[in-house]
Write a protein that binds this DNA or RNA. Sequence first.
DNA 1: TATGAATGAGTCTTCATTCAT
DNA 2: GATGAATGAAGACTCATTCAT
Lengths: 209, 209, 209, 209
Amino acid sequence: MYPKFSSLEPEKKENIINAAIKEFARSGYDRASTNEIVKEANIAKGSLFSYFHSKKELYVFLLNYIVEFIDKIYDELDWNETDIFQRLKEIAVIKFKIYRKFPRAFDFLKALAQENAPEVKSEIDNRMKKAVLDNGSARIYRNIDVTKFRDDIDIQKAINIIHWTALSFAEQQSNNINSYEDSDVEQLREWDNYLDLMKRCFYKKEENA
Amino acid sequence: MYPKFSSLEPEKKENIINAAIKEFARSGYDRASTNEIVKEANIAKGSLFSYFHSKKELYVFLLNYIVEFIDKIYDELDWNETDIFQRLKEIAVIKFKIYRKFPRAFDFLKALAQENAPEVKSEIDNRMKKAVLDNGSARIYRNIDVTKFRDDIDIQKAINIIHWTALSFAEQQSNNINSYEDSDVEQLREWDNYLDLMKRCFYKKEENA
Amino acid sequence: MYPKFSSLEPEKKENIINAAIKEFARSGYDRASTNEIVKEANIAKGSLFSYFHSKKELYVFLLNYIVEFIDKIYDELDWNETDIFQRLKEIAVIKFKIYRKFPRAFDFLKALAQENAPEVKSEIDNRMKKAVLDNGSARIYRNIDVTKFRDDIDIQKAINIIHWTALSFAEQQSNNINSYEDSDVEQLREWDNYLDLMKRCFYKKEENA
Amino acid sequence: MYPKFSSLEPEKKENIINAAIKEFARSGYDRASTNEIVKEANIAKGSLFSYFHSKKELYVFLLNYIVEFIDKIYDELDWNETDIFQRLKEIAVIKFKIYRKFPRAFDFLKALAQENAPEVKSEIDNRMKKAVLDNGSARIYRNIDVTKFRDDIDIQKAINIIHWTALSFAEQQSNNINSYEDSDVEQLREWDNYLDLMKRCFYKKEENA
DNA sequence: TATGAATGAGTCTTCATTCAT
DNA sequence: GATGAATGAAGACTCATTCAT
């Protein structure tokens, strides 16, 4: 895949990736300008199209690149932790780590989720089915100890509710642009509150003892 | 407002509205092609721009048209019902009514929420502040009897979770394109299950007796 | 010529003529909008094009209409006056009369002279060859007593210089927008000075005695 | 300024300049068609807009280009010559030089002076204030020996008459399209006659001795 | 006859993609 | 391989002219 691009100097590759992420995140697939990307990356127009044969190919490459990058970081998680709420607590911490290291990645992912351009819509959907950020069957929810849930509820539905809450909360928070320093801490505390609430409601009484 | 368009024959108006909704829903504001719209609506290029003076005006018209259309249907709701789950049950029924009468409306609304084009972004935000479809403080959640909720949870957070679940479930379902007849019934039954689950978990024991 | 238009009520005709003159004078042939004209004249678009089959026909009609209108006023001149400078003095007075009565006419004529649109350029040139405003062979310079000119100069050339001076002076003055009351008087006095200068230079000594 | 255009091959540049001058001179700013220009210049639509970012930029470029071109040629004039008629004789020769090298330039300048389009009106006015082609106070009439004029006339008025005669004569000649070879010579001789006439009339007797 | 909505060729401008150097 | 100028289809929008009512 992308042999010409792969054999470039790492620094040049990074320049191109950063320039492209920046532009796609800012403008979405349609509006993103390849002119802007080559200018930012300091390469020739023709070069970009020799590495990636089309705007679409470049976009799909970035999509995979970022998803893999995030997947790698998720490997740090303690996958032996079987409590779903504990795991989601850790995930929140990890997300902040990614964010601090690579803030544009999430911008791109957010733009991804809102992408309407038909050329890339299906690619996104395909890729996302396997991704960490997708629905309840993803690896985030593997090896969860389901015995802790109340017996009178459908566990898969409960997990879906938890998942949707996590996604919606994250989106809500990212829409509040907070520049002050300790916003992380506050957001994490708020998220803990949501997790506690759900734990109290969805787990058996004795689990909340 | 839009006097020329308003005085068109209803069928022609509907053609144009449907063609425009279809195109905007498929491609978003920017990429949507007025050429495509006039072709689909079977009118001349000049006609579209005599009804609406710009692409933006057409978009804003649709935005208001659909929001008002949905608002009107929402008036059918029994707003004296104070049980949140009962109300969401009724809302689900109403949504299906809208969907059957005007299937593209929700597609457009979904695209709306994801719209990034700066030309229309602020229009969307302004209009949506008053809309039914907005966040948990909207009229859907007015007059809710909060005394039914368990005393040990934050009620606003619980309502948020319920709201996010409703939105996410609806989106999930609309992504499953079901053409067979009775899918409504099945989807409503599934939604009832979610509501029951949340009721059982978030309400006081005696409310579920 | 223009039978449909001719048989209209005089008031309606005048409305249309005034509206058209105004628009053509303001914007030139190309930019002039038939929409603007019908709006100002309070008639339907289709009517305009049934009176005049095209924008061009309307323009040519106006051209002839105004030239004839001005020709008629020129009939007031004392054509027995054979002194060229005396005649030009009277013409200046008459021009102010026309201007006061029908200010748009000169605007239109000025726009005429600057018209570039190829559709009407040749029409203008043709018409103007016969017109009062054109070159030295026009009726303004008929019956002039050429014996007053110095014997050592080419009289036709002298007349051309006088003519060009008249045209250029008029244009210069009309470019100075003077709203204060007595600008007429001042402009006429200045013009007299030019006439005196040329008389002193182009006539025999004894004529200036 | 216009770096992309500047670095084109001279022949290509000339093609574009000629095509653009031709079209603007023929139709004025508004009606001039960029389609026509690219067709005539044998370049792609996109190319024109990569050299000049808009129709207006192209127009302003031409405006400056031609004015500078003419200014440069005017530098050849013997500015120590203080006799106004001698100077105007030399200027006529120079104008023919320009005309032979760059025949469309004067057409463009003529159209320029008549241009009404608001997009470029102010640009034209700004540029023309400094230009050689402007009114009687321009450098053409600097350093003129006014003592040669008759004492009994207003010198500024006399200069105005001379200036207006020069402009009007030039316009009259350029309207007579003469393709036969020796028309220059004839036109220059005719112009000399005009100059002689005015010299004889406006100068003191002893200057004509 | 009068109307004005409908028409569609034409306007300037953009930008992903190609290809000669 | 790298370059970036050249391409031209497609974009939104205008307006003189036509024609069904």
